[in-house]
């Protein structure tokens, strides 16, 4: 048992977490059909802005989760690789964290996820530059401001009050639906119990019609996530960089 030194924060804090995380996700690529339900569910849950055709063409779209796919071979023996939902891997040792001059992207010691503190962010975009997974998106404009995007005047009624509406000039990314984590923990605490496995889940996992995404505690060997991870055919993307990703991909099938 390693002892935790609370003075080790930020970049060094990652070492603390090396052994185990807290929240984790397993994505079974063999089940993913690329249907994009997770993408829109995430957008609706987390007040993610849409940027319009032109900005989307510049690569400014704000997806926190995207579905990647690659091609192999040429017609007629062409094959698409498994769809690969890509989101923030909530690295235990995140490359984005040490480069932030404003300490706006830091490691949460209590939830062991990588958090983006919007009010600290000054928009240097160093973190996005240093993220090997390219999952951070930057607010180039006030897309969610009704004075700039008139449609927001009515669309804002849908905004989730549990999630900050981001403004221009800051970075954002998947938070593992931390608002749901807090809500579930708060509810459990008020009832004097622990959060049960499967009691709540992230918006993407909740929507996924193929049950390809599973979310839960990786430090609890009884949880579904831990059991799936223990099956042994999971991979963690770019783990050779030492990032300690908390998302495990199962690549079954062929």
């Amino acid at each position: 048992m390693t002892t935790i030194d609370l003075n080790m924060v930020g970049a060094k804090g990652a070492l603390v977490e090396a052994a185990e995380g807290k929240w984790g996700m397993v994505i079974d690529q063999d089940l993913c059909t690329g249907c994009q339900a997770c993408v829109t569910a995430c957008a609706m849950e987390n007040n993610i802005a849409f940027v319009g055709e032109e900005d989307a063409g510049y690569g400014r779209s704000m997806h926190w989760i995207r579905i990647e796919r690659f091609w192999e071979g040429h017609y007629p023996h062409v094959k698409m690789t498994h769809y690969q939902p890509m989101l923030c891997q909530q690295c235990g040792k995140a490359p984005c964290e040490p480069v932030c001059p404003a300490f706006a992207t830091v490691h949460s010691q209590s939830e062991q996820v990588n958090v983006q503190v919007y009010n600290r962010c000054v928009g240097t975009r160093y973190c996005g530059n240093n993220c090997p997974y390219q999952v951070r998106s930057f607010n180039w404009f006030d897309y969610n401001d009704e004075r700039i995007n008139k449609a927001i005047a009515t669309l804002k009624h849908q905004f989730n009050p549990d999630v900050t509406v981001r403004r221009r000039g800051i970075m954002e990314k998947c938070s593992f639906c931390i608002q749901r984590i807090h809500k579930a923990q708060d509810k459990a605490k008020s009832e004097g119990r622990e959060v049960a496995d499967g009691e709540f889940t992230t918006a993407c996992a909740q929507a996924c019609p193929a049950d390809a995404i599973v979310f839960g505690r990786v430090d609890n060997p009884e949880s579904l996530v831990s059991q799936l991870m223990a099956e042994g055919h999971g991979v963690q993307h770019l783990s050779e960089l030492g990032t300690l990703p908390r998302v495990t991909y199962l690549v079954g099938g062929q």
Partner: peptide
């Protein structure tokens, strides 16, 4: 479960 179109039904409800 839901699909992508079901999720965005809210943007129909609050459509400008």
């Amino acid at each position: 479960k839901t699909c992508a179109r079901g999720q965005t039904t809210l943007q129909g409800l609050y459509n400008p």
